[in-house]
């Protein structure tokens, strides 16, 4: 239980993450691959990724942004990119619940391209087709300032058990530390 068997995320599948630190989780997961990342987010989102903040996790020049106009376009772009495989990690901002057909199509596309997909979802918006579903939330670190302590929790797992861990991102060495298995 101490080592996270489900991380890095299994390639060729689409995963889901929710919670306040979902984008942080996505960035850390994307940093495990050595190549480019596509981040798909609908155009109406005004939130921006700050390159200096992102630079602590992965180099911002590896990230490509796609700003589709609506949810259908977002899924189409995601399918195209997952199938192509030139960008091995695709992050998809999901604004509406996926039905089984959409989720399954994404899974098939990821399998065809050998890529990893990660959907950023809101709470309780998950699709049944997802390989794993995570909940990531920041945790106040009593011991250290400038900490990046987070609680990562698997709440759905098709090929294993659920679990929760406290992890921390090391910006100097660009690696992730599992601090301790979190209490349930």
């Amino acid at each position: 239980m101490r080592d996270m068997t489900m991380f890095p995320l299994r390639a060729g599948r689409v995963h889901e993450v929710c919670g306040p630190s979902a984008i942080g989780f996505a960035a850390v997961a994307a940093a495990q691959t050595a190549s480019g990342v596509l981040y798909i987010r609908e155009r109406w989102h005004t939130e921006q990724i700050h390159p200096s903040g992102l630079g602590a996790i992965l180099p911002p020049e590896r990230v490509l942004l796609a700003r589709p106009a609506n949810h259908t376009d977002a899924l189409a772009v995601a399918e195209e990119a997952l199938k192509d495989g030139v960008l091995p990690f695709v992050i998809i901002g999901i604004s509406q619940p996926l039905n089984l057909r959409e989720g399954r199509r994404l899974q098939l596309a990821a399998k065809a391209g050998g890529t990893t997909g990660l959907c950023l979802i809101a709470q309780n918006m998950g699709s049944n087709a997802a390989e794993t579903r995570w909940r990531a939330s920041p945790v106040f670190d009593r011991a250290y300032a400038d900490s990046t302590l987070m609680r990562w929790e698997i709440i759905k797992n098709k090929s294993g058990t659920n679990g929760a861990w406290h992890v921390r991102w090391d910006a100097e060495r660009h690696c992730m530390h599992v601090v301790c298995p979190a209490p349930e």
Binding site: P51, A66, R67, A69, E80, A81, D84, V86
Partner: peptide
């Protein structure tokens, strides 16, 4: 070949959502 494949992907995505909507963060 990788840059070719990447620009092909950008073109394909661009035909769907507009080429200016595939973006990069530049300092």
């Amino acid at each position: 070949r990788t840059p070719d494949r990447l620009s092909d992907l950008i073109t394909r995505i661009g035909t769907r959502i507009g080429l200016e909507n595939v973006q990069r963060i530049v300092p």
